[in-house]
């Protein structure tokens, strides 16, 4: 064997040492990925991520709760008064400014995720006997957040409006959420 190069540039041994260490570090890093990814939603969970709902039975002024991805979704058949009320608001005054037109695909159907944006409770207002808050929409009993007839936050601690999920109307009475 010939003499190994020595000096400040490092030796063959240094190279092997660093190469081995780097290889082991990268290998260990890659090996942790499956451990992280196994906690992500599995294929069967993702496959059930959308839901079709028949809304033909919901009368004006009434609402329905459906379970989608483990969460409640409120589907409300709004009356003309509720729609005009939602559109009369000065958007600039809102905590989370959004026009009602941007929150619905069809004026009479308001579809939102029924999770309060404060700390995740389910607001009241779907059932006829529920309190609907000061703005004729939804009221969260946990910490007193009031949502209007476009499900925008108007009063209380909630920072944002109720979330509008992705959805599409497959037919005028069949909506696919997700």
């Amino acid at each position: 064997m010939t003499a190994e190069p020595k000096g400040d540039d490092g030796t063959r041994r240094d190279f092997i040492y660093i190469a081995t260490g780097a290889f082991a570090t990268v290998g260990a890093g890659i090996a942790t990925w499956p451990f992280i990814d196994q906690m992500n939603p599995a294929a069967d969970v993702l496959a059930l991520a959308s839901l079709e709902v028949d809304i033909s039975g919901i009368q004006p002024g009434h609402a329905l709760t459906v379970k989608w991805r483990g969460k409640p979704v409120f589907i409300r058949h709004r009356t003309p008064e509720e729609i005009s009320q939602a559109r009369a608001v000065n958007v600039a005054d809102l905590r989370d400014p959004m026009r009602d037109e941007d929150r619905v695909q069809q004026d009479k159907w308001l579809i939102v995720v029924g999770i309060c944006t404060h700390l995740g409770c389910i607001p009241l207002g779907v059932k006829e006997t529920d309190p609907k808050g000061d703005f004729d929409g939804y009221f969260c009993p946990c910490h007193g957040s009031h949502y209007d007839s476009s499900a925008r936050v108007r009063k209380g601690p909630a920072p944002r409006n109720l979330e509008v999920p992705a959805y599409e109307f497959l037919t005028p009475t069949l909506v696919k959420i997700g």
Binding site: Q38, A42, D44
Partner: peptide, 25 residues
């Protein structure tokens, strides 16, 4: 263990789910 179901009705299916659906299962 986090994905397995220890019941007579669920065990076999949960192992198949681990094989097919769970990420890197």
């Amino acid at each position: 263990a986090a994905h397995y179901v220890p019941t007579v009705d669920g065990a076999f299916a949960s192992v198949e789910r681990i094989m097919r659906d769970v990420n890197y299962g």
